[in-house]
Design a binder for these strands. Structure first.
Length: 288
RNA sequence: GGUGGGGUAGCGAAGUGGCUAAACGCGGUGGACUGUAAAUCCACUCUCUCCGAGUUCGACAGUUCGAAUCUGUCCCCAACCA
């Protein structure tokens, strides 16, 4: 099996810096595993690496579609796997757990494209009842209020019968490192980095996006919608910044839950681990 | 110094005699998730030896079978008048 290295962790831990150091050391190339950084023009707000920061290290799957263009995890899976085949030593770097899973396991996505807005006339409860009749196991796993997921499960039930109950199997020999820090330290970093984003011109980026016809309110990526609110005068600057920091912290927390419970990974506390220790780890993985 | 107002769990804020360990919101924590994933959703959040018990609603002292809710004194807070 092909060897790949995955570097993941919650937003703000410091994946980017380390990934560059490691890629230079091992002559690797980076495949982005961050759902938001796929999009062009969303730079500052997604903490996308700059050209200078790349230091000649090759990056893939960054800036490949326009913000309004459709891009699915299925597309990601196809392109990503092709890249893995082409690159000698791929470093998959990013915090989108599901994307990583789709990339490095046999995660089944080969059905027809998603349909939209089914059953608008049904209530959450009715929808859930419908799912109970089609796939009771799946229904028991999901709360009726989670309409979006209930709809998706209904879709799966209609297309291929049942939601897959077993976890997917790896298709590569992957070393999965999840960088962490203690909560306080992580939250401080997130707050600080958020301030930096504004100093670096996040607002200007948003104004520019608007000029080019992007509807900030339609972007799912953290911050853009709130900056839209601020630009519309519905939110004070301070409120907006605080709220964005908070959403970033909440996101980091959700990521941690995923890594802990959905991913088979080695946790590395960056507050207590040197880069040399990480290098040693990778060296022994590559030799094995 | 004077007047009327206010002090409720980490924060904001309901509650104005029993149905109140105290609504709700935020924050925090844990969790779910095989396709919007930086998405979507759920649970817990006074304390403990946690299917039961113990301590709370500025402090103390009262009234009452029973008080966060009524009375008195005191301490703080913001506001207004001097």
């Amino acid at each position: 099996m092909k060897k790949v290295i995955v570097l993941t962790g919650p937003t703000g831990v410091g994946k980017t810096n380390i990934s560059i150091a490691l890629c230079k050391r091992f002559n690797g190339e980076i495949i982005n595993a961050d759902a938001s950084q796929i999009y062009r023009h969303l730079n500052i707000g997604t903490a996308k690496i700059t050209n200078e920061e790349m230091q000649e290290v090759k990056h893939h799957l960054l800036d490949i579609v326009e913000p309004h263009e459709p891009f699915s995890i299925k597309d990601y899976q196809i392109i990503g796997r092709k890249l893995i085949a082409e690159i000698d030593l791929p470093f998959i770097v990013g915090g989108s757990g599901l994307y990583i899973q789709a990339l490095i396991t046999d995660y089944n996505l080969d059905t027809k494209p998603r349909s939209e807005n089914q059953y608008p006339e049904l209530s959450n409860e009715e929808l859930h009842q419908l799912l109970v009749s089609l796939d009771p196991d799946a229904a028991s796993k999901i709360h009726p209020n989670n309409r979006r997921r209930v709809l998706r499960y209904l879709e799966i039930a209609n297309e291929r019968g049942k939601v897959e109950a077993n976890p997917p199997h790896p298709i590569y020999d992957a070393l999965v490192l999840c960088f962490i820090r203690n909560r306080t330290s992580l939250y401080e970093r997130i707050n600080l980095r958020c301030e930096e984003m504004f100093q670096n011109g996040w607002i200007e980026e948003c104004i520019e996006l608007r000029k080019n016809g992007v509807n900030l309110h339609q972007l799912k990526d953290i911050g853009y919608r709130l900056i839209g609110e601020y630009l519309d005068g519905n939110l004070s600057y301070k409120e907006m910044v605080e709220k964005i920091k908070q959403e970033q912290r909440h996101y980091a927390k959700r990521q941690m839950t995923w890594f802990r419970n959905k991913m088979n990974c080695t946790f590395i506390d960056l507050d207590e681990t040197s880069i040399d220790e990480i290098i040693t780890l990778i060296e022994s993985f590559l030799k094995s």
